[in-house]
Design a protein around this nucleic acid. Structure first.
Lengths: 221, 221
DNA sequence: CTAGCATTCAAACGTTCGTTTGAAAGTCAC
DNA sequence: GTGACTTTCAAACGAACGTTTGAATGCTAG
């Protein structure tokens, strides 16, 4: 009892979660069978139901393992900005997209999850959408009020829409990296420079967030 | 032979396509069974295989029915802009997002398809991604060169990325409308004013497209 | 009317799905 | 070593999947 066991406490659980991350990303939830998943993880077919209860509970566990810490990091970074009185739109955006983009650079674990996550915002299954929606809720609340304070002149409706647009850009950028290639000319090898991508993305999002208000928008507000 | 038949030439095909649009949007491709689909369409279970050959061929037909005309409309609108020498970034963006947003206002047919389409950019199945990728290719080519002419000072890499971001914003906006509600405060009832949404979206995208080039981006180019 | 073709239908095909079961194997305190 | 657990395992469960089949029906030209 003095020395921690070399085999981690729940190695089977971890292997299942890792395999699920990869296969869900590659083939989706419904396209990934338990037989394929457990074979990839090198565990018995019944292991998922034994350790997680059901396939859906496994899906939930996959998200909870990484999404909760990621959003906690986002909130912590925002709190750091507030403490240092640096609530510029640019720094707020950077605090939000940073944790996501940095996870892409993770060897294998994080990258699979990030691509899976980016796709799941538009997941058809209501249960999954509701699940990640409630996981995001606390962080979203914080960022919304931070942006309201940073942009006091912006109408509330417009801010919500622009946050919506920003979120979509991030989600699509994460999900589509090295998957769909609608625009010819992208070189996949430079896509994993997260630092450069963060600069590109932040520049784009900050400009969109601060776009001048057209008359039709002001009228609607 | 003088009068067109009142019953359209392929009513069963149309009913299947309409039901597929709706159910694929609601439950995804793998989550929609042929039995559920044919029951919704009010046709026999074997009708899909008889008229389309297979489930995958049906998926392809669903996209081909609306995506090809929509992209043709985008190209035509771009040609109109070129003819009138009005190739501003704002008008180019409007020409691209317009046909998609207008389809949301369609009673039932178009709206289902647009939400389905927005989700499919991040579809896990390679075959589906390849399919819509090749459907978009001609229009993408035209818009890319139009933007290159409108923004001669922008590095090629950066333009490709910003088109990527813009496309993601549009895709997410179309797909997520009235589905996921990550940000509290959205009132679904004003989401279908396509004219106002087009203004909001164009303002956001145009600002992002024209964002100032940071030094790190310039250095990479 | 009838021959020929297009379409619909109920039934069944073999396969794969998520889950369950009960026995076997492993683990640890005492 | 023994007993009380946790975990793994091979096997099987019923249900649902996409697809196929062959007969029945609808339609149209001659």
């Amino acid at each position: 009892m003095s020395i921690r066991p070399i085999k981690p406490q729940h190695e089977t659980r971890t292997r299942i979660l890792d395999a699920a991350e990869e296969l869900f990303m590659l083939h989706g939830f419904e396209g990934t069978s338990m037989r394929h998943l457990t074979a990839r993880a090198g565990v018995n077919l019944a292991a998922v139901n034994y350790h997680f209860g059901s396939k859906h509970a496994l899906i939930e566990a996959v998200f909870r393992r990484r999404l909760d810490p990621m959003n906690a990091e986002r909130v912590a970074e925002l709190a750091r900005l507030e403490a240092s009185n640096n609530l510029s739109p640019d720094s707020i955006i950077r605090a939000f997209v940073g944790p996501g983009l940095r996870m892409i650079e993770d060897a294998k674990g994080g990258r699979n999850f990030i691509r899976l996550l980016g796709r799941t915002y538009t997941e058809p299954a209501k249960t999954v959408r509701a699940l990640i929606g409630q996981m995001y809720a606390p962080a979203m609340e914080r960022y919304k009020s931070a942006l309201e304070r940073a942009l006091p002149q912006m109408p509330g409706d417009e801010l919500v829409w622009r946050m919506h647009f920003m979120f979509g850009t991030l989600a699509y950028t994460l999900a589509a990296t090295d998957t769909v290639q609608l625009i010819a000319g992208c070189k996949p090898e430079d896509r994993y420079d997260a630092r450069l991508l963060e600069d590109r993305l932040t520049a784009f999002l900050a400009a969109g967030l601060l776009a001048p208000l057209k008359s039709s928008i002001k009228k609607a507000a």
